[in-house]
Design a protein around this nucleic acid. Structure first.
Length: 569
RNA sequence: CGGGGAGUAGCGCAGCUUGGUAGCGCGCAUGCUUCGGGAGCAUGAAGUCGCGGGUUCAAAUCCCGCCUUCCCGACCA
């Protein structure tokens, strides 16, 4: 490809709309342009990267035995009613009506479509297992799209769905995808980590997220410093440390303290001159099954997902002021477990063993001190309901956990029979008996993976593409196209590389060298070959690696072959 | 949905306080010189100042309403 005939509208300055690195660089390198919030066009350069990424995904899916197909983007409401998700999916589901007033939605995911399809075409155990995938558009009407294509509303995704005869089969299918995903991100040249994840509203029994490690990542992941345990914060378990045994001899007398207008942990600890680990944070939640009170230590954070999973309820959110008042008799900021009745109280394990603690007095401007378990109140249960943090003990080995940031680029779920049951996807087994298929689903955000690669690999001059997804493998910079000698050499190298099947871009533009070099760095092609004065004068050309900046001089003779060797090395 | 910014030429921005002929840099076009890290000179094209309404002799500027967009938070298969 010739640069002069390609379209790479690079930007000299950072666009005002972009904050994060990958977004900024993708705009500046002429890979994408925004049409609306969270909706982007992919330009030719970006398209090449996307397609290379997709191709690697495709090859590994195929290797794992999955079959590519294409499912409709616009989906009828009916199948969503069948699965029961039309009413639970929420506003993220972009709903629309056709001219006959029939309801549709834009596909945010395709469990309904695939299940509907498979139940029609698969009827025998002989046709199973089967794993079907596609690589195309999804639309999710995110509350707040941001970070360019990292959290876009419309995006390219690879989504796969496996169908098995039984649970054991489903686990094998899941394992194959876990393998395939590991190979994919390996091949893409990314530093990543599979982590245990919460399976969320999509349902199912277990799940892993594939996280690309990057300081700018949106997600916090927790990894063990000693064993190979890794999970996202939503899921990360904490080993139960404390015991419920306390020495009653240490108990001091319960006391009531005036704490005018002090609602936050900081205000209370500052006023009472105690550490936040002595506070019992009391949170009132409303759930689909009524209100619940959750207790965590003052220096800990509640994990609503753990709490929700523990309670096994559909909805859970922090209670509004009026609910808090009706339960505690006090405004927000003064809730405490002492004297609370007729409401379920769940305490975090982290509170076990605490003595003489501080908590809200269930009365305006009052806290109580020297609060002790069993004497002053007894929670219904203790459970793991807080967010894991740096230093917490690993659930497997008890060694301290560390936190890292990451970008979720892939997610695999074992779904079980959630959809096959609701939508009636059954097959006949060898005995002629109808059984539900056992499903799994597996997604990779292709655009997000590209953005993550850029987050992970760039410098102040621009993108440094991992070779497997670089838009071109080699950029030949013809310094002065009006110099016939230079032009001839550059063209020969270009032709030679093309004939060898190398993706090469020849910068034959009538631009000053500085511009060409700046653009080269920005766009991030791994190998840059410079054909300039030296090529004509000394028969020498420069080969520079984008990643290391290392420059190598090679002779003009057989340059194409030499460059090809360098690419491989 | 709550809080905070922003919308003026393709991009980055000034002008608005105090109403009076719409500006700068980059980019773009043409010409000459230049040519190994974002050149110089000259000439030129390009804007319903986000939209609608109001005040006024006169609105980019003041007032009201709306839209869009970015950031923080809540949310997130």
């Amino acid at each position: 490809m010739r640069y002069s005939q390609f379209l790479i509208p690079t930007l000299r300055e950072d666009p005002a709309e972009a904050e994060v690195v990958s977004h900024r660089l993708m705009l500046r390198a002429g890979m994408i342009r925004k049409l609306a919030a969270g909706v982007y066009s992919t330009l030719p350069l970006g398209e090449r990267v996307l397609q290379k990424t997709a191709q690697i995904v495709r090859e590994e899916m195929n290797r794992a035995g999955a079959l590519e197909l294409t499912l409709p983007f616009v989906q009828p409401a009916e199948i969503w009613h069948e699965s029961g998700r039309w009413n639970v999916y929420g506003k993220e589901l972009m709903r629309l009506k056709d001219r006959h007033n029939r309801e549709f939605c834009l596909g945010p995911t395709h469990e309904e479509v695939i299940t509907d399809l498979v139940k029609g075409v698969v009827s025998s155990y002989k046709q199973l297992p089967v794993n079907l995938y596609q690589i195309h558009i999804k639309f999710r009407d995110e509350i707040r799209p941001r970070f360019g294509v990292m959290r876009a509303r419309e995006f390219i995704m690879k989504d796969a769905y496996s169908f098995d005869v039984d649970n054991a089969g489903a686990e094998i299918s899941y394992g194959k995808m876990y393998e395939a995903y590991s190979r994919i991100f390996e091949r893409l040249g990314l530093t990543f980590r599979p982590v245990e994840a919460d399976s969320g509203p999509i349902g199912g029994s277990f799940s892993h997220e594939f996280m690309v490690l990057a300081d700018t990542g949106e997600d916090v992941i927790v990894t063990c410093s000693a064993c190979d345990y890794a999970a996202n914060t939503e899921k990360a378990e904490i080993k139960q440390e404390g015991t419920s045994e306390v020495n009653e001899g240490d108990f001091k007398e319960l006391e009531r303290v005036e704490t005018p207008d002090m609602r936050t942990i900081e205000e209370v600890t500052g006023f009472l001159k105690v550490g936040s680990e002595l506070l019992i944070k009391t949170l009132v939640f409303t759930t689909s099954d009524g209100p619940v009170v959750a207790l965590v230590r003052g220096d800990h954070e509640i994990n609503e997902i753990k709490l929700k999973n523990y309670l096994n309820c559909n909805e859970l959110e922090l209670a509004e002021e009026d609910v808090i008042e009706s339960i505690t008799g006090a405004p927000r900021g003064f809730a405490g477990p002492v004297g609370l009745e007729k409401v379920k109280i769940i305490a975090d394990y982290g509170l076990q063993g605490g003595t003489n603690m501080v908590t809200g007095g269930n009365e305006r401007d009052v806290h109580v001190i020297n609060v002790n378990f069993n004497r002053d109140f007894t929670p219904d249960t203790f459970a793991d309901i807080r967010l894991a943090d740096e230093g917490d003990p690993c659930p497997r080995c008890g060694k301290p956990l560390t936190t890292t940031r990451g970008i979720e680029v892939g997610h695999i779920f074992k779904l079980g029979t959630k959809y096959s049951k609701s939508m009636g996807a059954t097959y006949l087994d060898a005995d002629g008996k109808a059984r539900e298929m056992v499903m799994g689903c597996y997604g990779i955000g292709v655009g997000r993976t590209v953005a993550a690669a850029i987050e992970q690999s760039h410098d102040e001059n621009g993108i440094i593409f991992p070779a497997p997804i670089a838009p071109f493998s080699v950029l030949v910079v013809l310094v002065n196209p009006t110099d016939e000698g230079q032009a001839k050499i550059a063209e020969e190298i270009y032709d030679g590389l093309m004939q060898d099947g190398v993706d090469v871009l020849l910068d034959d533009r009538d631009e000053r060298p500085g511009i060409k070099f700046k653009d080269a760095d920005l766009v991030g092609i791994p190998i840059r070959v410079t054909v300039g004065k030296n090529a004509v004068k000394d028969n020498k050309i420069d080969v520079k690696r984008r990643k290391t900046g290392e420059v190598q001089e090679i002779p003009v003779e057989n340059a194409a072959a030499a460059i090809k060797d360098i690419i491989v090395s």
